[in-house]
Design a protein around this nucleic acid. Sequence first.
DNA 1: TATAAAGTTTAGTCATGGCTAAAAAAATTT
DNA 2: AAATTTTTTTAGCCATGACTAAACTTTATA
Lengths: 215, 215
Amino acid sequence: MTSIAREDYLKAMWKLGSSNIGTLELANHLEVTPASATNMILKLSENGLVMHKPYKGASLTDTGLKQALSVVRRHRLLETFLSKTLGLSNEDLHVEAERLEHALSKNLENSIAEYLDNPVRDPHGHPIPGPNGEILTNDDIVLSDCPINSTTLIRQVPDEDLEILLWLKNNGIILGQKMYIKSKNNFDDSLVVEINDSLIEISSIISKLVYVTRE
Amino acid sequence: MTSIAREDYLKAMWKLGSSNIGTLELANHLEVTPASATNMILKLSENGLVMHKPYKGASLTDTGLKQALSVVRRHRLLETFLSKTLGLSNEDLHVEAERLEHALSKNLENSIAEYLDNPVRDPHGHPIPGPNGEILTNDDIVLSDCPINSTTLIRQVPDEDLEILLWLKNNGIILGQKMYIKSKNNFDDSLVVEINDSLIEISSIISKLVYVTRE
DNA sequence: TATAAAGTTTAGTCATGGCTAAAAAAATTT
DNA sequence: AAATTTTTTTAGCCATGACTAAACTTTATA
């Protein structure tokens, strides 16, 4: 009843936000056709994992959310584990964890968590949900919402897009890095920040994927 | 074209020996019906992984053997990796590796092999096939074929059966252990061996699963 | 507000990999 | 050698999760 496909749908819905997820949006995210997404939404709905209002969108139920967070937990624990043991580069972690997450038993999940001392952040700074779906409450804020003329500390970088990840690394935008926000372009919402005495322009897209805390 | 089910069939055929594997034997090993096994044998045959003589049995082709050994390599590398990092007990290793082996990418396989310094034995003493299917030539012999009144060293214990594994451990039959073969029962082919000054009777079934070398 | 466009669902198809029941071949007994 | 048992295959069915094409809502535009 729980399958790889179902877990992928639940995780995708979690990523896309809390409510009224469009079929097309979900289908695009999973690279399937809208018809396939409708099909699966109906099945998940029958199993009480998803709420579906025809033509209006779908959202996770409490049970569905819990299962989605379980997948996310496995993913992030795996990233942390592979990083610590094999020293995989930050760019490789996501792809490998994506393959393994569905095959991780509860037992192995527990062993890994214990081995890592129950970490609350993965190597990209993302919070790791607890065994029952508890998620770390943090005061990380998205970079694009940050006030000008503030000093911030980088807390989360995205993990999926290789190109973005490499760009961030090449420009010194890494976890724990201090960064001063100089200005914001009112036309395209890009930012100019100062890192280690050099100025860097951060596109609007990227500034929505990086999270920071105020210093 | 390569799927979990197909990999399981190839691995099972490898385990069952080199040629003329019966449909029923294969089906029993995989806990599917004979009809399902016939079905899959035909598919693998179409893909050149298996030779099938109707009503006579099936066997792996060179390509099929190579793919089977690739699965075995992943399995045994995973066992070794999980043992070394998480310190999983010997009894847990098999089950966990069984789940993960199909999801291990070539990249991760390589990383793990390198991390472990290209091991040639897994924690149960089984040889780990190389990246191209090369298997360690060793002079391990099956315990049941061992001459009486010889001193032997335990080199391989089975990994699948929990009960057997626990019995072996509880009786001191572990890798590297010295063992003296005292006698053989001509009726049931069981053995009596001396380990650490105590005598142990080993059933015929188990004596076919343990491999040793002469001292 | 009527129409076009965008998004969603329905209907029907396909491959995969199970299953059962029945037919056919091979091996074993009598 | 004939009959029986065992093994294997064939035929047909089912669930899963993709797909296309067409129908149907909803939203946006003229």
